[in-house]
Simulated scan of single mutants.
Amino acid sequence: MNNSAEHHAGGLVLLGGASGAGKSYLARTYGRPHLLLDAFYREIAEDSTAEEPLPRTVYGQIDWDDPLTWNLNSAVDAIIELMETGRTRVPVYSITTSSVTGHEDLELAGGPIVAEGIFAAELPRALSQLGLRPGTDFHAWYIDQHRLPTAARRFARDVTERRKPVPFLLRRGWSLMRQEREIRGHYLAAGFVPVPKRELHRRLGTP
């Protein structure tokens, strides 16, 4: 990878990291547009209507950190449509109610498209299978930082936004903090490059 490809954030950027790492902040700041991959979560209604119920955690609740709760094909379709036509239509998803509450139009505004969400690691292989080249047609960068500030920001955000009941958030937060090394390894195995947040500000802010 040459220096231009490594440090220039043109086209499509997949931004990965643990929940609470600051993906949304970076994407909102630099994305033109910001594509929220969490918009492609499956709805809780599918738990009773789909052929297969949504996956469960060891304590019996729906495991919203399992990629099977997410619609990969719809996310890929939206990315390709946005890259090819300059616009796409995405769901408006409520984390609180685990349901789609509407749709919104997203338009290319000069780029880069910054797509982020906890399932971003599922995308490099899917995009590569469509002929897009990592490091050239898209970048995949992982926010590399210590797990403790990530956990604190995640809990404060989820409580403020009333995403789920506090006991659930505490169990989930503890589980995610223990799994963070594994999560990082999963992203890197998927083709993401670890980059400190300060460096990501520089790369994403480079025209």
Score class of each variant (00 low, 15 high):
H186S: 03
G185A: 15
V159R: 03
I183A: 11
R172G: 01
G173A: 10
A151H: 05
D144C: 13
R154M: 04
H186F: 04
D158Q: 13
Q145E: 10
Y142N: 05
L148P: 00
P149S: 13
P165C: 11
H186T: 09
A151P: 00
A190K: 03
A156V: 07
A156D: 06
R154H: 08
V159C: 02
P149K: 15
S175R: 13
A140P: 00
K197N: 03
A151Q: 01
D144A: 14
E199K: 08
G131F: 09
R162L: 01
Y187Q: 02
R198C: 00
D158T: 13
E161I: 09
V195C: 14
P165S: 14
R163T: 12
T150S: 01
I143F: 14
H186N: 08
Q179L: 06
A156E: 10
P134F: 12
R154V: 05
A140H: 02
A190C: 02
R157D: 00
R184K: 14
E199V: 05
V193M: 10
V159A: 04
L200K: 12
L132W: 06
Y187C: 04
A140E: 00
T150G: 01
L169F: 08
R163Q: 03
G131S: 07
H186L: 09
V195E: 12
R181D: 03
I143A: 08
W174I: 11
E161Q: 13
P134L: 14
R157C: 06
V166W: 10
R181C: 00
R184H: 15
F155P: 01
L170Y: 13
G135K: 12
L132Q: 06
G131V: 09
A189M: 07
Y187E: 03
T136A: 15
T150A: 02
R181Q: 07
R163P: 00
R162H: 04
F192W: 11
R172C: 07
L188N: 02
T150N: 00
R171P: 00
A156I: 07
H146T: 04
K164N: 05
V193N: 10
F138I: 03
H201Q: 12
E180Y: 04
T136S: 14
A156S: 07
